[in-house]
Computed example of a mutant assay.
Amino acid sequence: MAVQPSSSAVRALSLEYRGLQDEPVEGFCVKLLNEDNLFEWEVAIFGPPDTLYQGGYFKAHVKFPPDYPYSPPSVRFLTKVWHPNVYENGDLCISILHPPVDDPQSGELPCERWNPTQNVRTVLLSVISLLNEPNTYSPANVDASVMYRRWRDSKGKDKEYENIIRKQVLSSRGEAERDGVVVPLTQEDYCIKTKVKPDAEPVDMYDFYDDDYDIDDDDDGDDDDDELSENGEAWVGVTEIDDGDDSGNGES
């Protein structure tokens, strides 16, 4: 029997999703797999400029547990990513996604693991950082880890790791084109500076755990501001390609 999501989990995800629309974060874009399901997101992570992954468009699925944010989400790459901390099936292995249990053999400190103050932003920003700075102490992909260390220790003279990444980046650009997305290549395009709306009210983090909260309640009686976007998407740090069609279719 499936465990029903808690109302606090629905509340938290609803606020986070709308927050990513109101205050975008550089380096990734998000959308819901299904407009009626807040617990499964599709994300696209852009390779940071001035790294091997520059120009890359790496798609992944993020699944949230029914008791989120008390338990961490899971992240699985759909795009092939040759990386020390990504399993062959695409599952990501990173400390921030590990449950907050005592596991001395893992070599991880409790503070490095998941805790309820983490959120989608911190997870995805950690993933972006991990692309350029892999954890090779407990790799999910041993071959990629060995190859990465050779590349790093040779100061780039051993090109095997670099060549694989560049091929995957090039391949991912085709998918970006199909999705109508221009991947940012410069720091200026990659970094987003957002402005908080003058009338925006601060979010009380403790409200995440208020099970009596009515998601559709609004002071002005208008539910429109509390609904997800019409197409369930929040494009962050991207530019849609104008094809001339105004129809709008556009770590272990």
Rank of each mutant, 00 (worst) to 15 (best):
D226M: 11
V203A: 08
Y17M: 14
Y53C: 05
Y148N: 07
V182Y: 00
G248R: 01
P72A: 04
E112Y: 10
Y87G: 01
R149P: 01
P5F: 01
A12N: 04
T79H: 03
L33R: 09
S95Q: 02
D219Y: 05
D245K: 06
P72L: 04
D158P: 02
I164D: 05
M1R: 14
D199R: 13
P116S: 14
V86P: 10
P202M: 10
V75P: 07
E108P: 09
V182D: 08
E201K: 14
G19A: 14
R173Q: 13
W235S: 02
I128R: 10
A9H: 08
L78S: 15
A2F: 12
G56T: 03
N141P: 00
M205Y: 10
V101N: 07
P24D: 10
G47A: 07
V123W: 00
M1G: 15
P24T: 09
L131V: 09
S6W: 13
T51E: 04
W82G: 00
V75M: 02
V238C: 13
T194H: 12
N115S: 15
D246V: 02
G180C: 05
D22F: 11
I128L: 13
P100W: 10
D218K: 05
A176F: 04
A2W: 06
P104M: 09
L52V: 06
V62T: 00
G244T: 08
G107Y: 05
R152Q: 14
V146G: 04
N89Q: 07
P104R: 09
D143S: 12
A9C: 10
E201S: 07
G107N: 03
R166W: 01
E201V: 13
C191M: 15
A12Q: 01
P48C: 04
C191D: 13
V196Q: 11
D219E: 14
K193R: 14
I94H: 02
D242E: 07
V146R: 11
D67S: 06
V86L: 00
Y17I: 14
L32I: 10
L124K: 02
E42K: 12
S6M: 14
Q168R: 02
R76H: 05
K31R: 15
P72I: 07
D143K: 14
G156K: 02
D102S: 11
R152I: 01
D199K: 14
E230G: 00
D224K: 13
I96L: 09
D36R: 10
L33H: 05
